[in-house]
Design a protein around this nucleic acid. Structure first.
Length: 269
DNA sequence: ATCGGGACCTGCTTGC
DNA sequence: TGCAAGCAGGTCCCGA
């Protein structure tokens, strides 16, 4: 589900909800997510004030003096404020706040993750990540270096979190369409000019999506429960067979890197 | 080292 | 209506 714009939207919502909040108690209801949630997590975070809510790649970090609560939403993860009585299947963890409010982490497919980051200690999930796509170091020259010599599809490369973070299956397709590059092209064959266009369009599509609160496909919700409204702006994702917004030709659907992929045969080369 | 494919889970949609 | 198959925003691991 959530790619950078959705995670950033959740981050902003949580930052608003959690300004000045203090964790009273952490209630683990199910620990076997993608990895098992450490048993030390509840007692480490109990009583801790939340100092900041940050995002790195597709991870969220709730900072406290004792450590940060690291979460990843996988495909179906959500954070929401859950008033008394609002308990749902797949609520794996509740953060009870000292003001009586409760935050729920819910993830039906359990591809997500909750973990603890100890202050001053590098966390393995956060090492080896590529640059943030909206940061200055994500340049055409950098991207071309990452594509050089690679026979794999360019779409697979830009979804590799070691190359650049935050780009998933929706925004990879959207950025490649805007840059007029076929998703299946060999990475090594992308020219410098195309790298420059791709960098620009990855940035633009992510920024536009953030401005709309992300993309709601089925279950994605902002931390306050609102949907994201970028879906109306998607040009190719899930539009196989429908007319290209640029030329009107029927969009092609296939698989690239094992993931559903849609592109225009006349607009993308 | 790189690459492709399958695995991990649940839920929803589609087609017979 | 009922059921099975296929697919879904993400990673991770394995074997070639």
């Amino acid at each position: 589900m959530p790619e950078l714009p959705e995670v950033e939207t959740v981050r902003a919502g949580l930052a608003r909800l959690l300004a000045g909040a203090v964790i009273a108690r952490v209630e683990l209801r199910r620990a076997d997510l993608r990895r098992t949630i450490p048993t030390t997590l509840p007692r480490t975070l109990a009583g801790q004030p939340i100092l900041a809510v940050r995002r790195r790649a597709k991870y969220l970090l709730l900072d406290t003096p004792a450590g940060s609560l690291l979460s990843h939403l996988g495909m179906t993860g959500t954070w929401r404020e859950a008033p008394a009585g609002d308990e749902r299947d797949h609520d794996h963890c509740y953060l009870h706040l000292t003001d009586g409010r409760r935050l729920a982490y819910r993830d039906p497919r359990r591809f997500g993750l909750l973990d603890l980051v100890t202050p001053g200690v590098d966390h393995p999930d956060l090492s080896g990540l590529g640059p943030e796509p909206l940061a200055d170091e994500f340049t055409a020259a950098y991207l071309q270096g990452q594509l050089r010599g690679r026979r794999t599809a360019v779409k697979v490369r830009i979804m590799d979190q070691a190359v650049v973070v935050g780009v998933g299956n929706i925004y990879a397709q959207e950025a490649l369409f805007r840059a007029r590059i076929r998703p299946s092209r060999a990475a090594a064959k992308i020219t410098h000019a195309e790298c420059a266009s791709l960098v620009r369009h990855i940035r633009e599509v992510l920024q536009a999506a953030i401005a709309q609160g992300g993309t709601t496909i089925s279950d994605f919700r902002q931390a306050g429960g609102e949907m994201g409204y970028f879906r109306v702006a998607l040009a190719v994702y899930d539009r196989g067979g429908q007319p290209c917004t640029n030329c009107g030709a029927a969009l092609r659907a296939g698989a690239v890197g094992g993931r559903g992929t849609v592109w225009c045969r006349s607009c993308q080369f």
